[in-house]
């Protein structure tokens, strides 16, 4: 029997680097990735939007959970860098026939991928994946835990819009309890010197989250002091059936919805998508000039190009 002793979440296995959690990113790495992303902007403007950098490399993405933005932007990012791509979704795969995550990964590893991008409904799935593949693993979302490329693209967007992140005040509004986006952003924003306030009903703010260094408010009017209002969706797919987190969506909208009346001029509004217009955010705000939502999607592409590039051709990845 082989050893089942696990590695810690952020371990580098035999020189392979992974991107599992924003908590593992230090500031120099973040700077490197964001600069790299910026350099890929020019490629996106060209008529032929392709670089040969990752020719002959294979990027395999496995999505055990629904995704529009993340899966498409990883795939496009890999293609822009000339990598071969395989994209699998759990529906229509052997997962539906009861295959375990371990066996799915061992099977896919036999193709010798260089990067495995994985999204899964359960916390720790990406960390577990590192045990069963020699590829670099990128966590594209594990339950309510982490989604590090989302926080990188959000940071990229904020910096492009505000010129800086250090000292910026970000209010993250809504269902923090079930949000991997919130957890990833908290870690990265704090590491980069931003102030973070979580705003939402107490039942949707995780108990003990203050220990990370964030402030917590249950009053929506507190978003007025923020530079960035980051709006989260009510993640009903992660809520326990029948559990009363809020009396109703209607009441949530009344008390915590982000409306233009609750914003002040000069603030920018972000949302990781998909938006539930009329619930956590009004149409008016979503479509206003203050909204950076489409910037976020564009940033997603160049940031994911940067991550793939860095893992495979970057300072350590080249080895």
């Amino acid at each position: 029997m082989t050893a089942v002793l696990t590695e810690p979440a952020a371990v580098r296995v035999a020189g392979t680097r992974h991107l599992l959690s924003s908590e593992d990113l230090d500031r120099p790495t973040v700077e490197r990735l964001l600069e790299l992303a910026a350099s890929f902007e020019a490629v996106a403007e060209r008529e032929v939007k392709k670089l040969p950098t990752l020719r002959g490399r294979t990027v395999l993405s496995v999505f055990f959970e629904a995704s529009t933005r993340t899966s498409s932007s990883f795939e496009l990012a890999a293609k822009r860098l000339s990598a071969d791509t395989i994209s699998l979704k759990s529906s229509g795969s052997s997962v539906e026939k009861g295959e375990t995550l371990k066996d799915t990964l061992l099977t896919l590893d036999a193709y010798g991928p260089d990067v495995v991008v994985i999204r899964h409904a359960q916390v720790g799935a990406a960390a577990l994946a590192t045990r069963y593949t020699r590829a670099a693993v990128v966590n594209a979302g594990d339950g309510a835990h982490q989604h590090p490329t989302q926080s990188l693209l959000d940071l990229y967007t904020m910096r492009a819009s505000l010129g800086r992140v250090e000292g910026v005040h970000v209010a993250i509004v809504g269902d923090v309890l079930h949000s991997r986006v919130a957890r990833s952003n908290i870690a990265l924003l704090l590491a980069c010197g931003a102030h973070v306030t979580l705003v939402g009903p107490p039942s949707l703010i995780p108990r003990g989250i203050e220990a990370t260094g964030v402030s917590v408010s249950y009053d929506i009017s507190d978003i007025a002091t923020a530079d960035v209002v980051y709006v989260l969706r009510m993640q009903r797919e992660r809520m326990l059936a029948g559990e009363a987190y809020v009396p109703s969506l209607r009441e949530y909208t009344l008390r915590y919805g982000v409306t233009s009346a609750r914003l002040r001029p000069g603030q920018v509004v972000m949302h990781p998508g998909p938006m539930n217009r009329g619930v956590e955010i009004t149409d008016e705000v979503a479509d206003s000039a203050a909204s950076l939502v489409t910037h976020q999607v564009r940033a997603g592409l160049v940031v994911r190009m940067a991550v793939l590039y860095d893992l495979l051709a970057g300072p350590e990845g080249a080895a």
Binding site: V123, A144, H145, Q146, R183, P206, G208, A211, T212, L240
Partner: peptide, 21 residues
């Protein structure tokens, strides 16, 4: 404690697991 994964508190808040209060 329905569907709880671990003790509710600061570590659980960070990990996004379901807390056992």
């Amino acid at each position: 404690s329905r569907a709880a994964d671990m003790h509710e508190g600061a570590v659980c808040a960070r990990l996004g697991l379901v807390g056992y209060p």
